[in-house]
């Protein structure tokens, strides 16, 4: 703790694994979730690059970025400290904090698929112990829970690990936005570049937020994820 976002001492072995696990080709099905952006586009709330950037800025700083960021750190710290009770508490909380049934599916399905792929292809020391705690909770792992667990196990410090996870989340949503608005690939990259400092700001904010302040305030995003459930034409599962 107190290391901030500096990735000092990040081994290249840890770095390549994190890049692989957070890449769009890692089989978690990220391409099928829009976090309500499909409904935001339908309602005209997201309609070009500028409005996409503002919308994702809100998700990162006020919505899932804030709540998942805090839970990511709770999991990472529990694993580093070997605190199984704290780990189980955060797994349960992450499962119970649901803005809508679709964002719950988005997070749980990707978290479950993430750990399945890790177990099948990337043997990891220490994972069995936490799998046992996870099973005992009877809860599916949220995506942020799964990424926090493995990044702690390979020794990536909490600040860089969280920033990487938030970046992957933002990149996946930009990709959804590019398909939905639609935007050109270059505009998508411009959006992602504009969101880079915001991703860092969201990580810094999470590092200084006590767990008792866990929560969000992206009510418009929550609303889009609810109305997406009844959207007539839809490409995405959330």
């Amino acid at each position: 703790m107190g290391e901030g976002l500096e990735a000092a001492g990040l081994s290249t072995h840890a770095m390549t694994r994190l890049l692989a696990w957070l890449s769009p080709s890692f089989p978690v099905g990220g391409f099928s979730y829009s976090h309500g952006i499909e409904a935001a586009v339908e309602r005209g709330l997201v309609r070009d690059r500028a409005t996409l950037i503002v919308w994702l800025d809100g998700i990162l700083r006020h919505g899932a970025g804030r709540t998942d960021g805090a839970l990511f750190l709770a999991i990472h710290r529990a694993v580093r400290a070997g605190d199984e009770a704290a780990f189980a508490w955060a797994v349960e909380r992450a499962d119970a904090m649901r803005a809508s049934s679709e964002t719950a599916l988005e997070s749980r399905a990707q978290g479950t698929a993430f750990l399945l792929a890790i177990r099948a292809a990337w043997p990891l020391d220490g994972l069995a112990r936490w799998d046992k705690v996870l099973t005992a909770t009877g809860r599916p792992p949220a995506y942020s829970v799964a990424v926090a667990l493995v990044s702690a196990l390979i020794g990536v410090a909490e600040g860089p690990a969280l920033t990487a996870c938030l970046h992957a989340f933002a990149a996946n949503l930009v990709s959804a936005g590019v398909r939905l608005v639609p935007l050109g690939q270059t505009d998508g990259q411009r959006a992602l570049a504009a969101l880079d400092p915001i991703t860092h700001a969201a990580a810094v904010a999470a590092l200084s937020t006590p767990l008792e302040d866990l929560g969000g305030r992206a009510l418009a995003v929550d609303w889009t994820s609810m109305i997406h459930e009844t959207q007539y034409t839809r490409l995405f599962r959330s």
Partner: peptide
Amino acid sequence: ALNHPAGFAGAGAC
């Protein structure tokens, strides 16, 4: 946050 389009979008109540 109250004024942010993705936050409260200017709403005065919820």
